[in-house]
Each structure stands twice: as C-alpha cells, then as structure tokens.
C-alpha cells in the first residue's frame, strides 16, 4: 500500500492534525476526525500522522489496526451496523444477521458490489432492552424483525 494519498485525503488528514495535535495524546482524536471527514482512514495517512506527531509509522499503524471502528477503505453510501452481542442474539439477532448477509450478499466488514451498503458488526449498542438492534447511518432501530430490516434497506437489492 505505497500509493500516495489523494489530494482530498491529504487535506483531510492535515486538517485533522491541525485541529488536534496540540491536545494531549491526540492520535485517536485525529483518526476520528479523519474518518469523520472521509468515512475511512486512508493508508497514506499513516506516514503524514507519524511525522506530525513524531511517532513511528508502526505506532500509528498499530493503533489504527487495533480499533475495530476505523475503516481502511471507503464505506458504502449507507452503513448498516448489526449488533451481534448476547442480548440481541437472545431476541432473534441471529436470524437478522443471516437476513442482512443474504439480502446484501456480503459478509460483515464488506460493502455491496454496487457500493450501496457497508455491513458491519457491532457488539452492543446499549439497546439491549429493545433487542435486536441495528444502527443505520447513525440512526438507531430496536426490535428489528427481518421484514423491518428489508424496509429499512429500502426493499431493493
């Protein structure tokens, strides 16, 4: 992955660094800002951030890869996060996971070929009393049945 970052990527990374580098322990804040802007953390960000924070590339890369939240490539136009944890499993979450994979034709961590939806696993959304729960583009939904999931995804695909 030695491709140079695109200009928009570089700009987003530099802006994030400018905003946060004066804070204590700023690496995660910078990564959040980059992903907030681009939807992912481009591989080219590692070298720029490492230089700016005076860290080794290994340290920066190590942090990015440690956290499940950071994406390494652009997400689809929609991001569907399905809770895989116990309370949701107890309330039919397994069926929901299967439905999502079948409808979208992708596994967790993948984006549909048409770039429409990225499917992600999440381990608890704090909505365990109205399980099973999903988050679609930041909006939360509880007691989600397979039919409701189809509806949320627009019934297409």
């Amino acid at each position: 992955m030695s491709t140079a970052p695109a200009p928009a990527e570089t700009a987003a990374v530099r802006a994030a660094i400018a905003r946060h580098s004066n804070e204590p322990g700023p690496l995660l804040e910078i990564l959040h800002a980059v992903q907030g802007e681009l939807g992912y953390v481009p591989p080219g960000a590692v070298a720029i951030i490492a230089t700016a924070l005076n860290l080794s590339r290994a340290e920066v890369h190590g942090a990015i890869s440690f956290y499940h939240h950071f994406r390494h490539e652009p997400a689809g136009r929609q991001v569907l996060r399905i809770c895989r944890a116990e309370a949701c499993q107890a309330a039919g979450g397994g069926v929901l996971q299967t439905r999502a994979r079948e409808t979208l034709g992708v596994d967790f961590g993948r984006t549909t070929a048409d770039g429409r939806v990225t499917l992600e696993a999440v381990y608890c959304l704090g909505l365990c009393a109205c399980a099973p729960a999903v988050m679609l583009d930041g909006e939360v939904h509880g007691r989600v049945t397979p039919a409701r999931l189809d509806e949320l995804l627009g019934g297409s695909s």
């Binding site: 204590p24 322990g25 700023p26 690496l27 995660l28 804040e29 990564l31 959040h32 340290e59 190590g62 942090a63 440690f66 956290y67 499940h68 939240h69 950071f70 999440v122 381990y123």
Partner: peptide
Amino acid sequence: GAGAYICGEETSMLESLEGRR
C-alpha cells in the same frame, strides 16, 4: 473510544485515552 471491548478494562482505557493501542 473506537470499538474495542478491552478498552473498558481500566488500564487499557488509560492507554487508549493517551492515544495508543
């Protein structure tokens, strides 16, 4: 945080607060 269950363990949380793995 950034989606890591272990960061609820207090020393892991401190590492994460300092911006590391």
